[in-house]
Amino acid sequence: MAKNLSGDLSVASANRLVDGVVVFLDDAGQWTTRFERAAVARDKRGGEILLERARAEAFGVIDPFLVAVSEDDDGRIEPISLREKIRASGLTFDAIAAEAVRYA
């Protein structure tokens, strides 16, 4: 699958102040927990504008920043770094809780 790996695509992310949850800025300028709704900046200049918008909307979030993403042929985006993949999609193993309920 051909991916756009130019490194110029980005989305704006932050953690929400009240609960720390990972959020992304959407096209309407709202913070959403849904990565697939994130507004995508397509070049460096677009990234700067996106980050400015994110900072302007930063009252309820902590330290917005840009996340480099790639895009496949169907337009699906994915963070490039493992750290951001984990931030966007959660733990890479099953947390103990589900497992341990068996012992109840």
Binding site: F93, A95, I96, A97, E99, A100, V101, Y103
Partner: peptide
């Protein structure tokens, strides 16, 4: 195979 040092609430109570 478990995450080292993790315990669930049920296990703590146990």
């Amino acid at each position: 195979g478990a995450p080292p040092g993790d315990a669930s609430a049920v296990q703590m109570e146990g």
